[in-house]
Amino acid sequence: MGKVRWSELWKKYKFVLLVVLVGVLLMVLPVSSESKETETSDLQTPRETFDLAETEQRMEAILGKIDGVGKLQLMLTLQSGTRLTLAEDTQSDSGRTTRETLTLNRGSGSQEVVVTNRYYPVYQGAVVVCQGADSSAVRLAITETVQALTGLASDRIQVVKWTS
């Protein structure tokens, strides 16, 4: 057997050695705090609330920017509002069933319920009253925008002319 030349080994295995070195460095580096925050925020129940008036105002602001709309007012109706399904623990004792809502202890005396499903509002219809409603292009643009924002079918959206 001949002598091992480091230069030959380096040329032959330099990519393998670099990959191993990078892998070791990645294993040694500490985990960033950002991923820890994500993990804990996934456990917490988001405190989202739905406000119909705020949604209407935001949509009015968007619709008001469409060319030719002019002055406008929007009204949305809901088929159902926001609902949460909470996790429950069911226990049976000699023919008697008890149900308790599951909660998570967050320390310092705070508790949060465990939400298993979140049902968002379902829109029933929309009425837009605007000055530019006599233009078919404006009516189409408003209808398509409201469809995109609410998921309503076009037959559930009415665009009518604003009377002075």
Rank of each mutant, 00 (worst) to 15 (best):
G81I: 01
V138K: 12
T40R: 15
R156D: 11
E144F: 09
T150L: 10
S94F: 09
Q111F: 05
A126G: 04
G2R: 15
Q91W: 08
L9N: 05
G64S: 15
K11Y: 02
E56I: 01
L17K: 06
A61V: 09
K36D: 06
V31N: 03
Q111M: 01
A148C: 02
A137G: 06
T143L: 08
A153D: 12
S154I: 03
G2L: 06
L140R: 07
L63A: 13
K161A: 04
R156N: 09
K14L: 00
Y13H: 08
E56P: 13
W10A: 09
Q158G: 08
V146W: 09
V138D: 09
I142Q: 08
Q131P: 00
L78A: 03
D42C: 01
N117P: 03
G64A: 08
Y13T: 04
M27E: 02
V146P: 05
V113H: 00
T163I: 12
T163E: 13
S164G: 12
L21V: 01
M27S: 04
A87W: 11
K12Q: 08
D42K: 09
L76I: 13
L84S: 01
Y123W: 10
E54D: 13
D51N: 15
V160E: 14
P46L: 01
V4Q: 04
T101C: 00
E60A: 08
S154A: 10
A87H: 14
T143F: 14
M75D: 11
L52Y: 10
A153S: 12
V159R: 12
R96N: 13
S136V: 13
V146A: 07
Q91P: 04
A87F: 08
E34K: 12
F50V: 01
E39N: 02
R58M: 12
E54L: 07
V22K: 02
R5L: 11
V159K: 11
K65S: 14
E48D: 14
G81F: 14
Q124K: 12
V20R: 04
S41E: 07
E60C: 07
T38R: 12
V20L: 13
Q147F: 00
V114M: 03
L152V: 03
I142R: 04
G95W: 02
V146C: 05
K161C: 00
R118H: 10
G81A: 09
E54G: 08
K14E: 05
T85W: 02
A141G: 00
K71I: 07
R83A: 14
A141M: 02
A53P: 02
L72D: 14
L76S: 13
V146K: 10
T45A: 04
G132K: 09
D155V: 07
T150S: 14
Q131N: 01
R118C: 05
V20N: 06
R5A: 08
V19A: 15
Y120L: 06
G151N: 00
K14F: 06
S33Y: 04
E37I: 06
V128F: 03
W162R: 14
R106V: 00
S110D: 07
S92E: 15
R118F: 06
R47T: 05
V19L: 11
P30R: 03
V19K: 04
S108Q: 07
V129H: 10
V122L: 12
V20M: 10
L104A: 09
V128E: 02
T55H: 13
V31W: 03
S110H: 06
T145L: 08
A137E: 15
K71W: 01
S80I: 04
K3Q: 03
V22F: 13
Q73L: 07
V122I: 09
A126Y: 13
A148F: 14
V122K: 13
L104I: 06
